[in-house]
């Protein structure tokens, strides 16, 4: 069965099962590996992408459910240069191992689009992504800066 996916503005015709997880199709069929596998059950957020501008956990997203939608991955987010979120991540030296940060940046970028001036509580309620290195204080500081902008 052919599935049509639009990822970072590029159309892909893929011969995959309708219930194939978007995460693995992005990574292994399309070859964009910036989106990470962390838990497989939408708990950790390492696989977060944007679907029509909203954060979505791709590990539990069947590809058929996002056909024809605008899917953006970390590779597409900064395609025209680093975004303010990415710049803030460098400014605050957020990443440690970095593995969760693609998902973290995608989730925070979607939050800021919906709510450009989030409080600490807004951040805590919206971002449930897991980072095991413990970069949360720097994420909080970076988002405080971004919220002022």
């Amino acid at each position: 069965m052919t599935i049509r996916l639009k990822v970072n503005g590029v159309e892909h015709e893929l011969d995959v099962e309708p219930d194939a997880p978007l995460l693995w199709v992005i990574r292994d069929d399309i070859g964009l590996t910036g989106t990470k596998f962390g838990c497989g059950i939408a708990q950790c957020g390492a696989c977060t992408v944007h679907v029509n501008g909203e954060a979505q956990r791709s590990c539990v997203t069947p590809v058929s459910s996002v056909e024809g939608m605008e899917i953006t991955t970390i590779e597409g987010l900064g395609a025209n240069g680093l975004t303010p979120v990415q710049q803030a991540w460098i400014e605050h030296q957020v990443p440690q191992c970095g593995y969760c940060q693609s998902g973290m940046i995608m989730a925070v970028s979607a939050l800021l689009k919906a709510n450009p001036h989030p409080t600490d509580d807004d951040l805590a309620n919206a971002i449930t992504n897991i980072c095991r290195c413990g970069t949360y204080p720097r994420i909080r500081a970076a988002v405080r800066d971004l919220a002022k902008a």
Binding site: G31, L32, T73, W89, P95, G98
Partner: peptide, 27 residues
């Protein structure tokens, strides 16, 4: 001094073990 590894960790280009790509690779 800012960390040398961070720029690649904000744009998804750090190549972790999970990201290994080889022709004809199986899983």
């Amino acid at each position: 001094i800012p960390r040398v590894d961070i720029p690649q960790k904000v744009n998804g280009t750090t190549d972790y073990g999970l990201d290994t790509k080889l022709p004809g690779m199986m899983y």
